[in-house]
Design a protein around this nucleic acid. Structure first.
Length: 485
RNA sequence: GGCGGCAUAGCCAAGUGGUAAGGCAGCGGUCUGCAAAACCGUUAUUCACCGGUUCAAAUCCGGUUGCCGCCUCCA
């Protein structure tokens, strides 16, 4: 079995073969830094994070590039409105991006270029397009001529003649064809600008990604990703201008993630159903949110609802509870430096790793992969139930192996990254101001009552603790307590 | 108007030709003084609807209905 990815360009799942041996170049469109990221940005970032983690676990050497668009109409507009520089505004939201994505366990890319760092490259590429006859200057603006590029529209599956350019927005009359798009915009007062052969100005949106792809990954590279909505016009345009300028094939596989909707509607500021990562994390544990975002296949729309997220939380709690119980039996988990899924199946009877790989190989079927983790957790619980008390060597090694599998799978998904104790602590961090000594004292008191078979008193103490958010569990080794989550 | 996607139990969600994963919730049981947790069993004769192909279809084909996305900045 080998990795199959759905390639938007061919509209099929295809076997993935890297351009060059064990090396893979991936470019994912990042964010425009004019505001906080929402959970849709989180989903996209997490999808490619999982892809990169998985490819690395399979032994590939991945060169992952993710950009920041730091010059753009919206940034300029907002900066002007706030009376701030675009640079400072962009930096603020880049910092916020790292903070929010970091909390969600999204790893940094290998290269995280900003558009403004590649202005020279953009001018070079635009010049090449001019030289090759794909671009024309009109005043101080430069446009890409879509009619000159054979196959324009092929990626997104549309024909020039079918598109209703300007149906919702007036077409710039300087364009020779309504679908022509801007490569270089002439400078306006109070806007960032750079000198160019066509006069001072700033780049159009699409050219930055073309240039950065080319700079870090070359004229042909393996995977280009982004949200479904970027397919057109952004990716179509990126591809057209890149191939027109550099030849090559540009991206060989196009991977697009589906949207997060809220109450079945796309998030948008105008609808007011816009949920930032930051706000979501006030309600949900980061891993709960991350689990939710990978619980559905990445290409499907994902509808965000509080109930759905809390249902998943209950599942994650169950996993962590098992891991916690496991620590009591075989000690804390020692994390290996690198996660590797190659050659993991020492036990031929146990197909967990094979099945996990099979699921992930099938166009990153994270939903199926999560199902396997739950199956494995049940196995672990079963073993723990059966050995309660006396753990022999065989059971111990089976438990340790199972746990390693769960954690390896978790690491590929970017989950199970904290200790069970920490997870539960964070999950119930509603500042209950609990005094462990006080709780222990009450448990001791209840223990006395139980010894005297004073069930009324015992149950009353338990009820009091329950009101405080503490759940008791009477086991063979005595009573333990945990926070109610 | 053009293009594309989706429809699986009370809810969430895998499954793309071989007889319905998993999670949540529910019910019954084991354990427990009672609980909690865990485990076991159970919950869709059926995959929006109607036709067709096939020995065999949730899966393929045609049609119908409903929902959604893109065509404008957007993850």
């Amino acid at each position: 079995m080998a990795l199959k990815l759905y390639n938007t360009a061919t509209r099929k799942k295809q076997l993935f073969h890297p351009l060059e041996g064990g090396k893979i170049g991936i470019y994912a469109c990042g964010v425009t830094v004019y505001d906080l990221c929402h959970i849709g940005h989180a989903r996209s970032a997490i999808v490619f994070d999982v892809l990169v983690r998985y490819l690395r676990a399979r032994g590939f050497e991945v060169n992952y590039v993710r950009n920041f668009t730091d010059v753009d109409d919206k940034i300029i507009e907002r900066a002007n409105r706030l009376g701030r520089s675009t640079g400072a505004l962009a930096q603020e939201f880049i910092d916020a991006f790292y903070e929010d994505m970091g909390r969600l366990n999204v790893l940094n890319a290998d290269h995280e270029p900003r558009a403004t760092e590649h202005i020279d490259g953009m001018i070079d590429m635009i010049s090449r397009l001019m030289d090759r006859g794909y671009a024309y200057a009109e005043g101080n603006d430069v446009f890409f001529s879509v009619e000159k590029f054979k196959g324009y529209g092929r990626l997104s599956g549309r024909k020039l003649e079918d598109m209703q350019a300007g149906s919702r927005i007036a077409v710039d009359e300087k364009k020779r064809h309504p679908m022509d798009f801007v490569l270089w915009k002439s400078a306006k007062p109070d806007e960032p600008q750079w000198p160019s052969p066509w006069g001072a100005g700033r780049p159009g949106w699409h050219i930055e990604c073309s240039v950065m792809c080319n700079h870090y990954l070359g004229a042909s590279f393996d995977i280009h990703g982004g949200g479904r909505d970027l397919l057109f016009p952004h990716h179509e345009n990126e591809m057209a201008q890149s191939i027109a300028a550099m030849d090559g094939s540009f991206a060989r596989y196009w991977v697009h993630n589906g949207f997060v909707t809220v109450e079945s509607e796309k998030m948008s500021k105008s609808l007011g159903n816009f949920l930032t990562i930051r706000d979501a994390l006030k309600i949900y544990h980061p891993e709960v949110l991350r689990l939710f975002l990978v619980s559905r296949h990445y290409r499907s729309p994902l509808d965000f609802s509080k109930n759905a997220v809390f249902d998943l939380q209950a599942g994650l709690v169950r996993i962590y509870r098992s891991l916690q119980r496991l620590e009591e039996i075989i000690g804390p988990y020692e994390e290996p430096g690198n996660v590797s899924l190659s050659g993991l199946s020492e036990d031929k009877q146990d197909s967990f790793t094979e099945e996990f790989i099979k699921a992930m190989d099938d166009d990153l079927n994270t939903a199926a992969a999560i199902g396997l983790i739950f199956d494995k957790v049940r196995d672990i619980n079963k073993i723990m139930d059966s050995v309660d008390g006396a753990v022999d060597k065989a059971a111990q090694s089976r438990l340790a192996e199972s746990r390693r599998q769960v954690y390896s799978a978790g690491a590929v998904l970017g989950l199970l990254q904290v200790s069970p104790a920490l997870f539960f602590q964070h999950l119930s961090s509603d500042e209950m101001r609990l005094e462990p000594e006080e709780i222990e004292k009450m448990i001791e008191e209840r223990g006395e009552a139980r010894k005297n078979k004073d069930w009324a008193k015992s149950d009353q103490i338990r009820a009091e603790l329950k009101d405080m958010g503490v759940v008791l569990e009477d086991g063979p080794k005595g009573t333990t307590w945990r926070l109610d989550v």
